[in-house]
Each structure stands twice: as structure tokens, then as C-alpha cells.
Design a protein around this nucleic acid. Sequence first.
DNA 1: GTCAATTCACATGAAAGAGACCACGGTCTAGTG
DNA 2: CTAGACCGTGGTCTCTTTCATGTGAATTGACGA
Length: 400
Amino acid sequence: MVELTKFFNGYLEQEPLFKNKKVLQSNYTPENISHRDEQVKNIAGILAPVLRMEKPSNLFLYGKTGSGKTVVSKYVTSQILAIAREKNLPIEIIYLNCKLKRVADTEYRLISQLAKEFGLDIPPTGLPTDEVYKIFLKHIDHDKKLIILILDEIDQLIKKAGDEILYNLTRINFELKNVELSVIGISNDLLFMDNIDPRVKSSLSEEEMVFPPYNALQIQDILRDRSKAAFIEGTLSDGVIEKCAAYAAREHGDARRALELLRVAGEVAERRTKQIINVEDIDEAEEKIEKDRVLDAVHTQPKQFQLTLLSILDVADKTEDPIFTSDIYEVYKELCVKVGLKPLTQRRVSDIIAELDMLGIINARVISKGRYGRTREIKLGLPSSTIPNIRTTLKEGLNL
DNA sequence: GTCAATTCACATGAAAGAGACCACGGTCTAGTG
DNA sequence: CTAGACCGTGGTCTCTTTCATGTGAATTGACGA
């Protein structure tokens, strides 16, 4: 007990490194955005008609993760909203992230979430989808209004739920008398528009814009800018920002990643009761992020995923040779018997492996071995130091 | 040696089912006056 | 008479299975030099 009090007191006495940690979190919208002037101006130009109560064009933003799409659109729309409030214009801006599970990853949920934004209470399930549409439209069409709907990671939504949603969304404008709806779609996938119903495509992407990735110097600028607000002065030793930027630039200029790296490095240093963040902390942060990501994925995925991953770990442990789907499946079946779980078909396990790849936990590549068929070649993309940790967590979760 | 056909071992797609969860409306039951 | 309990129906959603089709290059075997 005494120990703990001492610890907490010590913690309080210690000089904090952070001035304002929020600045480094990914949902933070800074007051000025560096290196994205052109995009800001363009989007502002496209959206400006709302302030005259005219429906702006639908807009599509493309770009790799962490290239500022979300930040820029949030920034511009928040400015618009501020002016609209001032002048009492009935403008609503709704931001939905389609990737978040149970928020907007199906048509039903998208509409019900939308309805919730307007104060309607839609049950999470049970109603027919068109019923929800009706309720929503009826509620919304009372008075004149302009709505800008930002759909982040819209490619995820389309992939899961088909492109009818987009068609329905564009149709809303025909069905409603008083309300006009513009859509801003944000996508990481540059190619995803290609397999979409051409009618929808033409009506939805009236304007398009591509966000190029940041280069290392630009990321440095961003980091410097934000770290000024985030850290107490003098806590960053030389080279820290440069190194963070370099890491992130290697990953196609992902600014979000750079910021996360910096924040976690700060947390690592703080936990060590250090006064200064230096370059080594970044390496540790990198590893910690990776580990947390995997561990988190492991915990949230169903048992079958965990079992499959464990099989992969086991196989990877035993052999240096490349691993193929069938190897995994054999081990997986044995493990199923041990745990007392009904083994899934190979078809399904194959999908699970593909999904683990998507999560970035493993690296799976489809290769052809010519006469000897086609299969996935699986490699572990994890730092080897984290593997034992992950394995024990998995085993505990599965009572092994 | 060259070239096209063959062939393997899965990948990938599509459709449909199981089971959990839920809303709604109708019917039944019990409590109330 | 009315509120609540209790169905049955019909809906979504996730995870699976079943069935069908696709696929890339090593191998094969015919062919000509």
C-alpha cells in the first residue's frame, strides 16, 4: 500500500513531458494545416455554395492513409459550419467512418446512424432497411436544410455492402423536397471506383481530388508544428523528429503513423521517468505499437481466428521453409481437436488467412508453384521479440 | 530446343444456411375498478 | 378494461458451408531443327 502511494506521489512529482497529448492523437484537427493548402482551397471552393444554400457537388477524395484527407475535410467543413452557425443557416455536416465496426459498415447501420445524428432512435436491428429509410426521410424532410455527409473509408462500406447504397443515397435528393444531400466520399483505395455501377459513379463523383503522400520533409514540418503544442519545451532530443518522419516516409508518407510514433515514444519515455525523449525511445515505440496492434486484433477476433494464428505461429516456429495454406490447415485441425472446437472447412480457413493478412499480422502472398498448384505463401511480419508474448496470450485465451 | 497443352492445389466467387439478436403486432393472462 | 407477458413472424448480421469456377507456371509431350 505504502509502496503504491509512494509510486503515485512520485508520478505526480515527476515533470510531465506532455503539455497537451491530444494534439498528437489521430482525431485531432489542428488549427492550420501544413502542406495541404491547395487541397484546402479546392475543397473550400467546391463546398462554398452551401453558404448560399445551394447544393454543392458531390466530391471524392483519394489518397493513401495518413495523407491528410480526413483532416482536411474535417477542417474545411468545421469552418463552414462555424460560418453557417453565425449566419443561422440550416446546414448539417455529418462525419461517418465506415470502417468502424457497428457504426456504418452496412446500409442499415449507415442509415440508422444518420438518423441518430438527427436525434432519432433507431433500434440496432429488427427493422427492414427500407423502413428505416422511410422513418429517416420523413423525419428529416420537415424544413429546408442542406446536409453534407462525409463518408470516410467508403471503400470498406462498398466492399461489404455493395454499391446500391450509393445509388440510394443519390436518390434521396429526388425523394426529398426540402433537404438536399451532398456526399463527400473518402477512400484509401484509388482503384475502387472502377468496379462501381457507372450511373452511380457519374452522379457521385462529380468532383475528384487526389491527395499525394507527404514526403519526409513535410512530415517533419507537421511533427515540429504539433510537437510544439504537445510537448513541454526541450523534451525532444535532436533527431527524434527526423527519425519519426523517416519511419513514416518509408511507409508511403503516413503522417498519422508518424504522430502516433511520436506520442507513444513520449509515453514510453514518461513511463521510464525520463526527462527527455531520445531516438532509442522511437524504436521501442515502434515495437510497442506493433505489439499492441496485433494483441488488440487477437483479442477482438473470434476464436477461430486465434486458433488459425496460433497454427501459423506453430508452423513458422518449426520450419524455415515457406509455409503454405495446407500446412496451416493440417496443424489447425489438430489444434481444433485439442481445444475441442469443430474445425472449419479449408475454404473458410483460407479466408481467415487472407483476413489476417489484411490486418497486417501476417504476410500472405498468392503464388503459383506451377505444376504443383497455387497457394498462399505465408510469412510472419512480426518482430520476433513479440512472438512469444503473442503466443502465450493466444494460448491463455484458448485454455491451452 | 521450342511451344502449346495439361495439370495441380489451391484461390476466389456466389449463394445460401444457421443461429443470435431484435421489433412489431396480436393474443392471452392477470390485476384493477 | 387495461397493462404486461408471451408468442409468431419477419427483419439484420456474422460466421460458415456448399458448390462452382478461376488461375499461373512447372511439367509434359509433340514437333521440327
